[in-house]
């Protein structure tokens, strides 16, 4: 039982809670799994990873031992240090790139896709 000043029990005490929560919902784990599966089953000869999440450090590091890796930072922030490496590590020919607003604006789908799909008005 929560007690107030002087040790008085407060049965209807209200709690205020501050929560820090990670925002991703498995999209990083799924990307890492597909990446390693495709590399290890030899269905790709090189990979591009679009993420700046340092949780991908191990799968990306492992991929670099087997295929050339292009790492694309899709955020305006600094590239994650743990995703950095030498371009020559492993099989080599790795590269790093920071995406720009122009890259995104110049690679848009047509406003109508198929017969029923229309780009949302505010997009």
């Amino acid at each position: 039982m929560i007690q107030g000043n002087g040790g008085v029990p407060v049965p209807d005490a209200v709690f205020m809670v501050s929560v820090a929560r990670r925002e991703e919902k498995g999209s990083d784990v799924n990307a890492a799994s597909h990446l390693l599966l495709d590399v290890l089953t030899n269905v790709v000869d090189a990979v591009i990873v679009v993420s700046n999440d340092s949780d991908l450090a191990l799968p990306v590091e492992q991929a670099r031992l087997r295929v050339p890796v292009g790492l694309v930072n899709p955020t305006p922030g600094y590239p994650a240090g743990r995703l950095n490496a030498s371009p020559d590590v492993g099989v080599g020919r790795h590269w790093w790139y920071q995406i720009t607003g122009d890259d995104l604006r110049s690679a848009q789908l047509p406003p109508n896709v198929g017969t029923t799909i229309v780009k949302p008005p505010k997009w």
Partner: peptide
């Protein structure tokens, strides 16, 4: 043959910060 692996959440929030939440022309 190149495989491309995209973390959609990282990309979405990064793009939104770069291009602006209320701005059109980057989401599609």
């Amino acid at each position: 043959r190149v495989g491309v692996y995209i973390d959609g959440y990282n990309l979405y929030y990064g793009a939104r910060t770069m291009c602006g939440r209320g701005t059109a022309g980057w989401r599609w």
